[in-house]
Design a protein around this nucleic acid. Structure first.
Lengths: 205, 205, 205, 205
DNA sequence: GATGAATGAGTATTCATTCAT
DNA sequence: CATGAATGAATACTCATTCAT
C-alpha cells in the first residue's frame, strides 16, 4: 500500500471518528506517518480527500445497487434489495458510510461545488431507479398500485437513511436488534397489494 | 425586544443559513447590532446560543406533540398528528428546525455534553410516547397488530425526519408538491389493519 | 462589615490564592456578593484594591517594627525582633503577606506608579532603621564591629524575605520545622562579636 | 542562527523587559521577524518558550555549580563558589536570570505543570548538594559544627536569591557597590568555626 | 450607595496551504 | 515523490471599565 493509500485510510478513520472539520491535516499526516505536505501533493486540498472518499463509496453503492436490481425477481424484491444494501453498507463499510452521511449534506449546500452536482445526479439516479422498480412492481403485482412511484421512492429512501442516521447519531438510544426485520415488515405492509389499501381507491364490491 | 433576544434572533438566522461552525461570533454581533462581548455576557459561549435554540424548539415541539396526542381520536390519529406536526414545524419554524437537524447530530456525539443528554431524554420520551400511541391504536383497532410498537415508532420517526432532511439538504432535488399526502398514504397503508399482513398472524378461515 | 470591606476581603483571598492578574473583577464581585460596578465605586480600579491591601499591610508592619525596636534591649535584639516580626506576619497575616511578596515587585517596576514610590520609601526607611540598629548593636557590644551596617541590613532583610519566599513559592519543598530557630542561630553566628571574625580584621595577639 | 533561535532570543528579551504575561506572542513574532504561527510550530505555546528558557538556564546553572563544587578545596569554598556563581549569573546571564526569578514562582504554583516538577527536583538537588558541602566543611574544619546542614543550605540559598531579587526588583534602592564582598564577609562570619557559637557546644577549657 | 447590562480593544492559538530543498 | 519549516488570515473568548437607572 503506497503513501497515497495510507493518507486515504488515515483520513477515512479520522473523518469518521471526529468529523471532517474537526480533523486537521496535521492529524491526518501524523496518523498516516507522512509529512503534511504530501497530502497536498496527492490530493489537492483537504476536501480533495473527502471528495475521493465520497465518490468511491457512492460509486460502489450505486454499482452494487444496479447489480441487485438486475438480479431481483420482482419490483418489490428490487426495492428490498436496495434497502438491504443500505444495511449491508452500514455494516461492511461503516467508516465510509459514516463519512458519507455526516459530510454529504454540508458539501451539497456549498453552492458551486462540482462534487455536489455529481452527488445530486447520483442521488437522482438512484431515486429514479427505485421509482422504476416500484412501477415494475405494480406491473408484476408485487406492489400495490395506489402509490405514486416517485414519492414512494423518496419516502422509502428517506426511511432507511433516516433510520441509519438516527441509530448512528444518537449514541445512547436503545435500539432493538430486530429493527431491520421490522423495517422490512413495515415496508411490505405498506407496499404489498391487498384488500384495504386497494379498496380505498376503488368502488366497493 | 431586548439585546439578548436580538442576539438570539441574529444567531438563529446565521446558524440556519450558514451553519453553526461557519458562523462567527463577530458576524452574530454585527447582525444583532451589539458589541461582541455582550454575546458572552448573556450566553456563556458560542455554543451556549446553540443550546438555547435547540432547547427552545425541542421543548416547543414536545409540548405541541403532547397536546396533539391528547386531542387525537385514535392511535393512528395520534401518530399522524405527530407526523403532521413535523411538517408544520418545518414550515412555521423553518429556521429553528433547520438548525436542530443540522447541528443536533454533532452536539449529540460530543461526549459529556449536558445538553446532549437532555436531548437524548427528549427523543427517547418522544419515541416512547409514539410507541404508546401505536399500542393504543392496536387496542382501538386503528392500527394493525403485527408490528412491534417500539421498532415501528423508530421507523416512523426516522421516515419523517429522514424525509425532511433529504428535502432540505439536497437543494436541487425535484420533489413533488404532494409528497406530504403521499407520506400519509404510505403510512396508512403500512399501519391500517385488515391487510394480508394481519392475516398472516391470524388463523385462516 | 460593609460592602467595601466585603470587596477588600474577597480580593485579598483571591489575590493571595490566584494572583492579582489571574483574579478578575467579576470573580471578586461574585466572591464578595456584590455587583461588579460597586468595586469601581469604592476603589477606582482593580489595582486600587491592590494598593489598599499593600499600603495597609506595609504600614501595619512598619508600625509594629518600630514598636519592637523601641522595646528592644540591644541592637542585636532589635534586629532579631524585626526578623521575628517577619515570621509572625507570615503566620498571622498570611494572605496579606502573600499578596505583598507576590505583587510588590511587579508594582515597583511599573514606572510612574505613585504607590511604588511610597513603597520604595517605606523599604528604604526599614533598611535605614535596621542599619541604625546594627550601629547601635556595635556600640552596645551585641554586634560585631567589622560589618558594614547598611550592607548587612540589606543582607539580613534579603535573607528573611528570601527564606519566606522560597518556602512559600516552592510548594513541594521539604522544610524542617526548626528552620526559624536555625535562622536565628545562623544570624547570631554571623552577628555576635567573637574571636575569629574580629581577629580577621585585627592584628593577631 | 535559525528562526527558532530568533524566536527564543526575542522572547527572552521581551520577557525580561516586560514580564511574561505582558509580552504578547505578536510582539515576539515582530521582534523575531517571523510569522506569529511559527512560534507555535516550534514551541507549542507561549509558555513553551518560557519553559525552554527556564530549563536552559537552570541546567546551565546546575552544571556550572557541579563543576565549581568539584574544583573547590574545602566545604566553605564550595559554598562560596555557589554563591559567587549566583552573582556571576546575575551579571553574565542577566536576561535569563531575570526571567527565571520573575516567572518561576508563578510556574511553580501552577499545579500539575510538568516543568514545575522538574524545577522542584533541580532546586532540591541543589539544596542537597549545598547541604553535603556544609557537611564536608564540618569534616574538613572549614565550617563550624553547630549548624544544621539542611537548614543552613536553605538559609544561604535564600539569602543570595533574596538579595539578588531585592536589588533587581526595587529599582530605586541605593545599593553599595561592595555588597558582594560584604555578603561573603557575612557568610564567613556565620560559617567559620572558632567562634563562641562553637564554644557553646564544646566543653569549656 | 448599588446594580448589571453594555462596551471594545486585546490575545493566544489554529490550520490549510505553500515552497524551497 | 517526499519533507517540514514557514505563512498569515481567521476566531472564540476575556476583562477592566463605564453608565444609565
Amino acid at each position: 500500500m503506497g503513501r497515497k493509500e495510507d493518507i486515504y485510510a488515515a483520513a477515512l478513520n479520522l473523518f469518521a471518528r471526529n468529523g471532517f472539520r474537526a480533523t486537521t491535516t496535521a492529524a491526518v499526516a501524523r496518523e498516516a506517518g507522512v509529512a503534511e505536505g504530501l497530502i497536498f501533493h496527492h490530493f489537492q486540498s483537504k476536501s480533495g480527500i473527502l471528495m475521493a472518499i465520497l465518490n468511491e463509496v457512492a460509486d460502489d453503492f450505486l454499482g452494487q445497487a444496479e447489480k441487485a436490481i438486475e438480479k431481483s425477481v420482482s419490483g418489490l424484491d428490487a426495492i428490498e434489495s436496495i434497502v438491504r444494501l443500505h444495511f449491508r453498507f452500514h455494516e461492511k463499510r461503516l467508516l465510509e458510510f459514516t463519512v458519507l452521511m455526516q459530510e454529504l449534506p454540508w458539501e451539497m449546500n456549498r453552492s458551486g461545488s462540482p462534487a455536489a452536482e455529481a452527488m445530486r445526479r447520483r442521488l437522482s439516479g438512484l431515486l429514479s431507479r427505485m421509482s422504476e422498480c416500484i412501477e415494475e412492481g405494480v406491473r408484476d403485482g408485487s406492489i400495490r398500485a395506489d402509490l405514486d412511484p416517485e414519492d414512494t421512492a423518496l419516502v422509502i429512501h428517506s426511511l432507511v437513511t433516516g433510520l441509519i442516521r438516527t441509530i448512528r447519531e444518537i449514541p445512547g438510544l436503545k435500539v432493538n436488534p430486530g429493527i431491520e426485520d421490522q423495517t422490512f415488515t413495515f415496508l411490505r405492509a405498506a407496499l404489498l397489494p391487498g384488500r384495504h389499501g386497494d379498496n380505498a381507491n376503488r368502488p366497493g364490491p
